[in-house]
Simulated assay, not measured.
Amino acid sequence: MNPLVTPSLGLLFWQVVTFLVVLFLLSKFAWKPIMKALREREDNIDAALSMAEKAKLEMQALKADNERLLTEARVERDRILKDASEAATNLVETARAKATEEGQRMIEQARISIVNEKKAALTEVKNLAATLSIDIAEKLIRRELQDEQAQRALVQSYLQDTHLS
């Protein structure tokens, strides 16, 4: 039979001794660094998990801040739009008031101009009527005074009306 298939007592002894030596050497030199590396890895995994949790919390905080900023920006936008609308309304009202005032001023100036033009036209009509009356009177007097007899009678009449003192 094959000695590997059915081990003898000496082989078993040496296998146990070898196992114990390897176990001693491993516990003395390898297990501490292996266990240390495993603990470090476990610590690194715990640190990474805590950092991931911290990052998750920071992301939630950032998201909340972003929502708050968006809300504030919307409120600010609404306020700016309201202010702009009020300013536009005020500007329109001011322009309307100025236009009304300017229109009233122009109407008053036109009224004054019409009155002045009317006075000037009346004065011109009076002057024209006076000139026309004088022209008509002159023509009538010339017609009447064409003969010498009528002229002497008129002079006599004027002299009688005039009192010389």
Results as ranks from 00 to 15, higher is better:
Gln160Phe: 06
Leu62Tyr: 06
Lys28Gly: 10
Leu25Phe: 02
Ala120His: 00
Leu23Asn: 03
Met1Tyr: 08
Asn90Lys: 12
Asn66Arg: 09
Thr94Gln: 13
Arg68Ala: 10
Thr6Glu: 15
Ala47His: 06
Ala48Gly: 12
Lys36Asp: 15
Arg142Tyr: 08
Glu124Gln: 02
Gln60Cys: 04
Trp14Val: 12
Gln151Val: 05
Glu144Gln: 13
Ser165Asp: 14
Leu159Cys: 05
Glu102Asp: 13
Glu42Cys: 04
Ala95Gln: 09
Glu108Gly: 00
Lys98Ser: 05
Leu57Asn: 14
Trp31Leu: 14
Ser85Pro: 01
Glu40Ile: 03
Arg96Leu: 08
Val22Tyr: 06
Lys36Gly: 14
Val115Thr: 02
Phe19Trp: 13
Ala87Met: 12
Ala55Gln: 14
Thr131Phe: 07
Asn2Ala: 08
Lys56Cys: 06
Gln15Asp: 07
Asp65Pro: 01
Leu70His: 09
Ala110Tyr: 12
Met35Trp: 05
Glu138Pro: 01
Phe19Val: 03
Asp65Phe: 01
Lys28Val: 07
Asn90Gly: 05
Ala52Ile: 13
Arg152Val: 08
Asp46Cys: 05
His163Gln: 08
Leu91His: 08
Asp43Val: 01
Ile134Gly: 09
His163Met: 09
Arg111Gln: 05
Glu86Ser: 07
Asp161Asn: 15
Thr18Met: 11
Arg74Cys: 04
Lys32Glu: 07
Glu40Pro: 03
Ala61Val: 03
Glu53Ile: 05
Thr18Gln: 11
Ser157Asn: 12
Asn90Arg: 09
Pro3Cys: 02
Phe29Gly: 03
Asn127Gln: 10
Glu40Gln: 07
Ala130Glu: 11
Gln60Ala: 12
Leu25Tyr: 02
Gln15Lys: 11
Ala84Cys: 08
Ser133Leu: 12
Ala87Gln: 11
Leu164Met: 07
Ile134Tyr: 10
Arg39Lys: 09
Ala64Asp: 08
Glu144Asp: 15
Arg143Ala: 14
Ile136Lys: 14
Ala55Gly: 10
Ser113Gly: 09
Gln60Glu: 15
Phe13Glu: 15
Glu53Asn: 13
Lys56Asp: 15
Ala52His: 06
Leu140Pro: 04
Leu38Gly: 02
Ala121Trp: 00
Ala120Ile: 00
